[in-house]
Simulated assay, not measured.
Amino acid sequence: MTREPIATHRVAHVSDSHFTASGLMHGSVHVAATYSGALAALEGSGIAIDALVHTGDVADAGEADAYRAAAILTRETTQRTGWPVLWAAGNHDVRAAMAAGLLGEPATDGPLDRVLEVRGLRLVSLDTSIPGRVEGGVDEAQAEWLRSVLAEPAEHGTVLALHHPPVPVEVTAMARLHLEHQDRLEAALAGGDVRAILGGHLHYATSSVFAGVPVHVAPSTAYTIRLTRPAGGIIAVDGARAAGVLSLYDDGRVGYSPIPADPQHVLDSTPEDVFLAMGVDVEH
């Protein structure tokens, strides 16, 4: 009998919703609808989710109405599901407006670094935004803050959420807008209990490893970017949106599963009973 590892926690992951005060992006994308579609896909999956993480660019231009819209739509889901939410700031976000309009906190221009604990799992958001810039960074004070947070191990370890992911970037234009000071982040992670890093910013899904830690990047819920030839610029497309689910298992492993967020046509549906007589039993 095969024993599958048991997931102790599952974390839903969305990114780059790019809410606007007008409700539109590129003249035709209704960002509230595409974001709601991602949340509905997560909720409709039936997966037991412990928390929701948004890895930044919540709003496209930092407008107060955009943050209010994001807060209202998210709350409509979390009131049903009970999911706690951790927000990370992106380069399109404005810290003061995000703190006041989304986090319900006093407006501040300082980094929006936060910690959320869920049944022994520690979720940490690190604000890699640099006001007025597109690329990301980690300053010395943030690195020291993160090091102090990680000094005491959490029961089930830590998941780090940030907007600018420390991964190789395939789209040349986006590579120019990457995370700087990665050496500071690597040093802060050394000896800590971070099991996975969640990121956004790139508008396409990718995975890598940084400082021995798996990194998973969710595409935007607003629009996605095609992988292009070197120096091919950026091609934004209306489709291929997805959320993700990070699973943390009792044997120490982690897994990451994309959840398509665009409308889909179901081709077939086979009940679980059909598989019971097909092969190897699985022990959970």
Rank of each mutant, 00 (worst) to 15 (best):
T2W: 15
R3C: 11
P5Y: 02
I6W: 12
T8W: 08
V11Y: 07
V11T: 03
A12G: 04
S15L: 02
S17W: 10
F19V: 03
S22H: 03
G23R: 05
H26M: 13
S28T: 07
V29N: 07
V29Q: 00
A32F: 01
T34N: 08
A41R: 01
E43S: 05
G44V: 11
S45W: 07
I49V: 06
A51Q: 05
L52N: 08
V53P: 02
A59H: 03
G62P: 11
D65A: 15
Y67G: 06
A71Y: 11
I72C: 04
R75V: 10
Q79T: 12
R80T: 11
G82W: 15
W83Q: 05
L86K: 02
L86C: 06
W87C: 08
V94E: 14
A97F: 15
A99D: 01
D109T: 14
D113W: 06
R119L: 12
L123D: 07
L126D: 00
D127F: 12
D127C: 05
I130P: 04
R133C: 06
E135D: 14
V138P: 08
E144K: 07
R147N: 00
A154R: 10
L160Q: 01
L160M: 01
L162E: 02
V171M: 14
A173T: 13
A173I: 11
M174Y: 15
R176V: 14
L177Q: 11
L179K: 07
A188L: 04
L189D: 00
A190R: 13
G192A: 01
I197W: 09
G199Y: 06
H201E: 10
L202I: 12
S207R: 11
S208G: 10
G212T: 01
V213F: 00
V217W: 10
T221Y: 05
I225Y: 14
R226C: 10
L227E: 13
R229S: 13
R229C: 00
A231P: 00
G252S: 11
G255Q: 01
S257P: 06
S257H: 06
I259R: 08
P260R: 07
Q264E: 11
H265V: 13
L267E: 01
M278L: 15
G279A: 12
G279L: 14
E283V: 15
